[in-house]
Computed example of a mutant assay.
Amino acid sequence: MSDSRLTTHDSLYTDAINLLKQLVATPSFSKEEDGTATIIEQFFQSKNIPSQRFLNNVWAINKYFDSLKPTLLLNSHHDTVKPNAKYTKNPFEPIEEDGKLYGLGSNDAGGCLVSLIAAFVYFFDKENLPFNIVIAATAEEEITGKNGIEALLKNETFLSSTGFANSPFGGWGAIVGEPTQMELAVAEKGLMVIDATAQGVAGHAARNEGDNALYKAVKDIHWFETFKYPKVSEWLGEVKQTVTVIETENKAHNVVPATCKFVVDIRIPDCYTHEEIIHIIKENIQSDFKERSVRLRSTRIEVEHPLVKSGIALGKKPYGSPTCSDKALIPFPALKCGPGFSGRSHTADEFIFLDEIKDGIETYIKMIESIVI
């Protein structure tokens, strides 16, 4: 990497690709991101940009930070899932081939992260910006862990240094880097997972004994499959309920099961709260159930927000995303937008097109430049 300040889009792109290759070559499974956090710190140091770190989260603020101005947060994650068994390439070897960069985390979300970092570097020493810019490279996104963006947004040093704690504007806005092909994910479904248990009475299958918990579970599963919630979101459509696991405790063929457990994945649009969904489920199924978490709420940034308007002005389209991200854990307006294609995430031989990163950098810069407060 060059020691000089990046000033052109070409050098921004070159340094972004070099940084991404280092990140790919360094295993960074969720909760094990120490190595990539250090690499990101070293990158900022090479650009003479002061950075700070909390756990495995690294952040930096623009040179002419002004506490009287609103702050724009640029955020993406540097943790990855573990590679699946279908890889034919070394997941930790960054390989350029046919205009693509292969490697674990290249698409989700390394390309987004290095593009946001490049945009931040571009604006770092610009004077008279209408807002502050903070870059945060965070951990544990893939497992929605509590030591990633959620912990950072509660850290007193981060809050005081970025102005989020005492700014009259509060949390003004954020761009969350996830692969959206640079389209504008203005809304995102929330997630709730429930563990349900149908209760019965054990008995011998050859005699008319017991109360089959499996049959009870099947009735409830049928409700989850067929029930239509009356409200439909403008951006996110209907509630989606999917039963993903079912099991009984006994494995003997001749025993009527006393309990049957099943798991339901529920994707919740912005027209319902988690509590409303829980109430409706209680009224309609026999099985006992418990929700694992209610942290991942549906989120929405208004189309009239300056961030979204700047993207639309560049010809980008707003849409509702069915997948969750750290956007759900940011308690102020956040736009999900980044280079890459969501369908490549977590696949074998993951890759991102090099041109997608170049376009991502240029689009982020243009979007930020055109924000009107």
Rank of each mutant, 00 (worst) to 15 (best):
G237S: 04
N254G: 10
T259V: 11
V264M: 06
K261N: 15
V239E: 08
K240P: 00
T242R: 07
Q241D: 06
E225W: 00
C271K: 09
F262I: 10
S233G: 05
P257K: 02
T273W: 09
P230M: 04
E238T: 12
T226S: 14
I278Y: 04
T226K: 14
K261G: 11
V255W: 03
A258G: 15
E276K: 12
V255S: 04
T248W: 01
K261S: 15
W223R: 08
T244S: 14
K231Y: 04
R267N: 10
E276T: 10
E276W: 05
R267L: 11
N254H: 14
P230T: 11
H279P: 00
K261W: 01
F262D: 12
T244W: 03
I246E: 05
C260T: 06
A258H: 05
T259P: 09
W223Y: 04
E225F: 00
L236H: 06
I281V: 15
T244A: 07
E276G: 07
I246K: 04
I278D: 13
A252S: 13
E247G: 05
E225V: 00
I277Q: 14
C271L: 04
Y229P: 02
W223V: 06
C271E: 14
F227E: 14
V243C: 09
V255E: 00
H274L: 12
T273I: 08
W235T: 01
T248L: 02
Q241P: 00
W235N: 04
K261P: 05
T248P: 02
P257N: 07
H274W: 07
N250F: 03
C271M: 05
V232K: 15
T273H: 11
E238F: 00
V264Y: 07
I280A: 11
D270G: 08
V256N: 01
P230V: 04
I246G: 02
E234S: 08
V264I: 12
F227T: 12
V255N: 01
I266F: 05
V263G: 10
N250L: 05
K228M: 08
P230W: 02
H253N: 10
N254Y: 15
I266P: 06
I277V: 15
G237N: 06
